[in-house]
């Protein structure tokens, strides 16, 4: 699609795109290129010399069991966060879509956590579930749970998933509500006339019609779990105990900064880039379908 009515000018358009082009080239393409180059280099321990090592950094990564664990962990986190947050948000959205008194108020009261930053989410949840002083830990111990996410890796993982899913509820709720409101009400009426009970109406009418929204949100949630959980993890567990909450992004950060292993960190960055490109590609394919749906 192109505009028919346009202006003629030789230099003006270049001047207009110049600022964005400059920023994108300096702060996007140049670093991305550097990451790719760096991933083929090996630096000695003192940073004095570098040698070109082809795919050694990548091969080392895939031989490293801790990297493999981080991949599995990241996908597990993503899946757990997406499924728990999506199902809870869908329940709330279906309820809020009913013609209830005060539905605007409900919406307002449910969407604001979108604005809470990941590190703040981390701080809020670690405070509530802190082993020695958390207000909820008292009750957990009262129930006989030996609660200590700072020492127990599984509990730490559960805490991260819980906090990350909590933050994402509002986003998913908003998109589900928009998706539900876009379904013509006559469809429900037809199903009701056919004698379908509400639960059956949901599974046979609402859910299938909502599937584009669900797919879209699934991708968005996975990307969110990949990247935005960094702030949550860094304030709550800092990857620990041990490495039980180290995700791929956290590993890029900690290997590069704390370990000083830039070649490996760069190779990890490149692998992440490929993963994001694949995910975004899936999303775009889907968005195109949404238009013609």
């Amino acid at each position: 699609m192109q505009k028919q009515a346009i202006f003629q000018s030789r230099l003006l358009p270049y001047a207009l795109v110049a600022p964005q082009l400059a920023i994108v080239l300096i702060f996007f393409y140049w670093p991305a290129l550097q990451a790719v180059i760096q991933s083929f280099l090996l630096q000695d321990a003192f940073g004095l010399s570098t040698t070109f090592v082809w795919f050694e950094n990548y091969i080392d990564l895939f031989r490293d069991p801790s990297y493999f664990e981080a991949i599995v962990r990241t996908f597990f986190f993503s899946f757990a966060i997406a499924v728990s947050s999506l199902s809870f948000a869908l329940l709330l959205a279906v309820m809020a879509d009913k013609p209830l008194r005060g539905s605007m108020l409900y919406r307002t009261l449910l969407i604001w956590p979108y604005a809470v930053a990941p590190p703040v989410v981390g701080v809020l949840w670690i405070f509530m579930l802190h082993p020695s002083l958390g207000v909820l830990s008292r009750y957990l111990r009262g129930l006989g749970v030996d609660w200590n996410p700072l020492l127990d890796g599984d509990q730490a993982a559960a805490l991260i998933i819980l906090a990350a899913a909590w933050k994402q509820i509002s986003y998913n709720f908003l998109f589900f509500l928009a998706g539900l409101q876009a379904i013509p009400k006559s469809v429900f009426e037809a199903a009701a006339i056919d004698g379908a009970r509400p639960m059956r109406r949901f599974w046979t009418v609402t859910f299938p019609l909502l599937s584009p929204t669900i797919f879209f949100l699934l991708v968005v949630n996975i990307v969110y779990a990949f990247f935005d959980t960094f702030g949550i993890i860094d304030t709550m567990t800092r990857g620990g105990p041990g490495t039980s909450t180290v995700t791929l992004v956290y590993k890029v950060y900690s290997d590069g900064l704390l370990g000083g292993n830039l070649g490996s960190s760069a190779a990890q960055s490149v692998i992440l880039m490929v993963m994001v490109i694949v995910l975004t590609g899936i999303q775009f394919r889907f968005v195109e379908r949404k238009v013609t749906y």
Partner: peptide, 20 residues
């Protein structure tokens, strides 16, 4: 050139960007 940047958040190119 501008469009492709949509795909990659700052997290994946963090250290090279830091260096620049």
């Amino acid at each position: 050139i501008i469009f492709i940047t949509l795909m990659l958040p700052v997290e994946v190119r963090i250290y090279p960007t830091y260096k620049i």
